[in-house]
Every structure is written in C-alpha cells, then in structure tokens.
Amino acid sequence: MKGTIVINEQVVPNVRRLVLEAPAIARHAKPGQFVILIPDAEGERIPFTLSDWDASEGTITIFYLEAGVSTMKLSRLKPGEAVYTLVGPLGKPTEIEKVGTVLLGGGCYGLGGIYPLARAFKEQGNKVIALLEARTSYLIYNEDKIGEEADEVIIATADGSRGVRGHVWEAIKILEERGEKIDHAHFVGCTYMMMTSSRATEPAGIPTIVSLNSLMVDGTGMCGCCRVLVGGETKFACVDGPDFNGHLVDWDNVFARAGAYVGEENLAYQFHQSRADGAIKDDGCKNCGKEAI
C-alpha cells in the first residue's frame, strides 16, 4: 500500500484528479467510502472520497479541490512519487437498494464522488438522475462518465452559462415541477450545497442522504474530532458515517465545526506559501460560486 501516484492532473481549474496505486483499497472499496492520506512527512491526515477504483489494476481515483496546504502539497506530487501514507477504505458504505428513482446531486469534488453511487444505484435497477452543479460551464467535469451510468444528467451553473441557472436545489424544483417522483436523494459536495439541497427535498419528504466532510484526524473512531449532531445524537462521521440523513443533521453545528481551524489553516498556508514559489491561493471555494465555508 505504497500510494504511488499514477496520474495527478488538473481536470478543471482548481480541481485535480489523482489516481493512486492501492491494490488492497481497490479490492475492498464500496460506494460512499473514503481514504485518508498524508501528502508528506510533515503533513496532515486528510480524507478524500473514493470516486472510482479498479481492482484488477489495483488503483483508486479521487478528485480534490486545491483548498489549502495539504491539497497544495498533493498537487505538486508527480507520477512515480508516492504520498507519505494512505489508508482505507474507511467509513460505512452507502446503503444501495432498489427504491425507484434516485436523485444524485454533486458539486465541487462531489462530481467525482457521485459516480460510484450512480453506478451502484443503476446496478440495483434504479432510475438515476444526476445533477451536476458548478459556478460556470467550464468547471463541470466527469460528465461523460456519470452519463454512462445515469439515465439523465442535469447541469446547473450559477452564472447560467449552461443548463439550469442556479444550484442543485433550484434544479430539484424543476424536477418537481415536471412531475418527477423522486424516491431517494443523495448529495455529495460542499457543506453549503448539501444543506440547501437537503432543505429542498424536505417539504416533499424525499429520504435524503448527505456525505458529510467533517474535519478528521485518525478516521477510525478513536479521536472524536469528526463528531456531528444528527437527530440530537452525537455521531462520529468517520465510523458512523460519512452518510447521514440530511434532514436530521444539525447544519449550524457542522458549519461551526468545519471552521474550527480557519485561523490556523490560513497561517499554515501563508507559512508554506512563503517557502514555495508559484503557489496561488484561491480565497475560499469558488467552485460553485458560493462563499468559502
């Protein structure tokens, strides 16, 4: 499990695709699970959703947004080099059943993250509608791959340059207006998108799952850093999740905990930027046109 890099390329501005050698993970991965890696010897343990895997090749794929120090370090690694450590697959796999029509909404790295879900829900005989959102048309990626699995792909852009003008939740309204009966929804992406999308499915009572991306350390249930409030109960996202009922998640708490280290993250970024040439900092997440969380 050396974590040797096969591909590390930009797919759209700020989002990169990373293919790593990881035979044991590739063999055991299930949709909805994630890995934790450390880019270099001084690095942090950071979680990434498994966006694809190939057991015969022994590789896994993740998509990552260049957000701060860890992802900046990751972006500099070249094929043939290896990440410092890599562990997985972690977390509970997503429950995949035949329910009828399944809506999968992805934003940011979630355009990668929903692909295994699309494949698995399709295999179970569901009708799969995939909703991909981005700030503008050229930030959409992974569309063709998802299209191979989904019955329908809907694009939403904040600036209206392609598809529906707006976000996932606006696209959900359009689906409802056209009389689509949705039996199950699952959202992967930034917290803001997952929250607003969950709100959009609540009135119609559509069972909704979100894949939370809380801050984590060990990822094995040992530290409690990743705790979230769901239906009034404290859960550990790394072992009880990352999937939770989007209508029961305490979103204020998720937002607050996500911002626990904003000051330190900035300091670390400045610290590393002053050492490295050519690093560019995007102020927060511009991928879907919303404020950084």
């Binding site: 001084e42 690095g43 942090e44 350390v217 280290y261 330190e264 670390a268």
Partner: peptide, 9 residues
C-alpha cells in the same frame, strides 16, 4: 505547527 501541518491551537 506550522512546521507540521496539523493544527493544535
């Protein structure tokens, strides 16, 4: 920190 990336404020 910040020589190591994991924050412990």
């Amino acid at each position: 920190f910040p020589e190591y990336d994991s924050p412990l404020p």
